[in-house]
């Protein structure tokens, strides 16, 4: 198995590693870098639990080899919060709406939603359902997830950073 030197940016930090050609990006993140917030649910690109941002776009990290991410910028769930102790508005909104149960699909769901909100500041319910259409959740039936993303959009339209005065759910 051939080995390759790669350099990429992960959650804002430059990272270099020597990896086997067949190592998937998700295994690289989880097993090599111990970034275990990214989960594997199917390893064939359907469930979306392994979703990360690659140069800003949500992708399935189980369908990409680590070597293919060389030179790219990767964002995982560990990189969504503004700092080590806080939460992003979206993450906080997931808590506010209880948009999760077992939490296993949540990181992928958050990254798909994050990408949506980067491009669409006022998504309709249909836009939200479309954006998370590739992220399977077995616990929630999606309703509270849709509500959380709508709440985050509403909050972000008020302020671009988390504050103590975020709108609460009615």
């Amino acid at each position: 198995m051939s080995q390759h030197e790669i350099a990429l940016k992960i959650n804002g930090e430059t990272c270099t590693a020597r990896v086997p050609a067949r190592l998937t990006l998700v295994d690289f993140l989880r097993e090599t870098l111990n970034l275990t917030g990214t989960h594997t649910g199917c390893e064939h690109g359907v469930c979306g639990a392994c979703t990360v941002l690659l140069d800003g776009q949500p992708v399935r990290s189980c369908l990409i080899f680590a070597v293919q991410a060389a030179g790219c910028e990767v964002v995982t769930v560990e990189g969504l919060a503004p700092d080590a102790v806080g939460m992003s508005v979206l993450q906080d909104s997931f808590c506010e709406e209880h948009a999760l149960q077992c939490g296993f699909c949540t990181p992928g769901m958050l990254l798909s939603a994050h990408a949506l909100l980067q491009n669409n500041s006022a998504p309709s319910e249909e836009d939200i359902r479309e954006a998370i259409g590739g992220n399977l959740c077995r616990c929630t039936g999606y309703k509270q997830i849709v509500q959380a993303i709508a709440l985050a959009a509403q909050r972000l339209s008020v302020a671009n950073a988390p504050t103590a005065d975020l709108p609460k759910r009615p």
Binding site: L35, T36, G37, T38, T76, V77, E78, L80, A81, M87, Q91, D92, F94, C95, H98, L100, G103, F104, T106, P107, L110
Partner: peptide
């Protein structure tokens, strides 16, 4: 919920 949304499950 908090530990799950920050990827700390």
């Amino acid at each position: 919920d908090r530990r799950f949304v920050v990827g700390a499950g």
